[in-house]
Design a protein around this nucleic acid. Structure first.
Lengths: 158, 158
DNA sequence: AAAGATTCGTTGTAATCGCAACGAAGTCAA
DNA sequence: TTGACTTCGTTGCGATTACAACGAATCTTT
């Protein structure tokens, strides 16, 4: 506590700190798209994630979504409740295991996704075009980063 | 409910959707580190970001942090208030422009950062080691992504 | 110089989040 | 079967957040 005045802090470059850069990149890219479907359809990001999972898998339980996406149980549950209230999805009890809730898109939900998915696909293409050759590198990096931490159904080809 | 029954939704692979992957990667890496300094020093992520900016720049206004990190004004402001209450930073009024608040590390804050920064640096090295050759690609991708986004989203630059 | 517009940081408020506790359903073992 | 343990999804609660509104300071325009 004597030499704190000019104690030399370890050199640290925030602009090269990967978690920080990932956070900024994630927030910018997510919000840019989120704004579109929020303004046009009143959908939040958690709700969008649930919807996409349903569009992909057709029939998913809360816990499956929780495990796959980095979302808390309650977050998934509440997003699902709001989607149900809005008429986009339906909740059914799984006959085999009645603890599980089967989430499925309603026709209205399918119609919504028929509008949302092209939006997302276009945005993805925009990103890839923006990055050009750097995109493949980003993908590989994310693959390596995400692969390390718990993932079961991760395809790794091409 | 007539034609939507078997309406083929556009194919869409969430696992290859860049904003989503960035969000998951960012959340995992940030939390992994945050747990360390939360348990040991009671620092939250927003607080940590403010601290790092101060450690780097020595003298920063709220709006500078807001512009650089993707953090809301109020988030920065409240994080700074808590850091001030904890004695880690001090708030002064900028003499030249008295709307601006100068944030600076106190000696106690410098001592804290002397402990935190090596932690972060070690984590960064861990990530680089984990990724190996893929790290350079990730970096390049993020560079390209953040460079473009800055141009597009932030009209102002110094 | 004064009125109007703009910027900075704080604060009020409603909504959201994460965490933990809980009831319901299922599993296991004796 | 019964009782202890586990899992799934919801909900209560305190804390946090985003967004807007605001006062103070500065800039601009006349």
């Amino acid at each position: 506590m004597s030499e704190t005045k000019d104690a030399p802090l370890p050199a640290f470059d925030l602009d090269r700190f990967t978690p920080y850069r990932l956070a900024v990149a994630a927030q910018r890219t997510s919000e840019e798209l989120a704004r579109q479907y929020r303004d046009r359809f009143g959908i939040t990001i958690p709700q969008w994630r649930v919807l996409v999972h349903l569009a992909q898998s057709g029939d998913v339980s809360v816990r499956e979504i929780e495990a796959r996406v980095a979302m808390d149980k309650s977050k998934v549950s509440r997003a699902a409740s709001r989607l149900e209230a809005a008429g986009y999805i339906a909740k059914t009890v799984n006959d085999v295991d009645r603890r599980l809730v089967r989430l499925i898109l309603t026709p209205r939900g399918r119609a919504l996704m028929a509008e949302l998915l092209p939006l997302a696909a276009a945005y993805q293409r925009e990103i890839e075009a923006r990055l050009g050759a750097a995109f493949a590198g980003l993908e590989a990096g994310l693959q390596s980063l995400l692969g390390e931490a718990a993932k079961e159904g991760l395809a790794q080809e091409s």
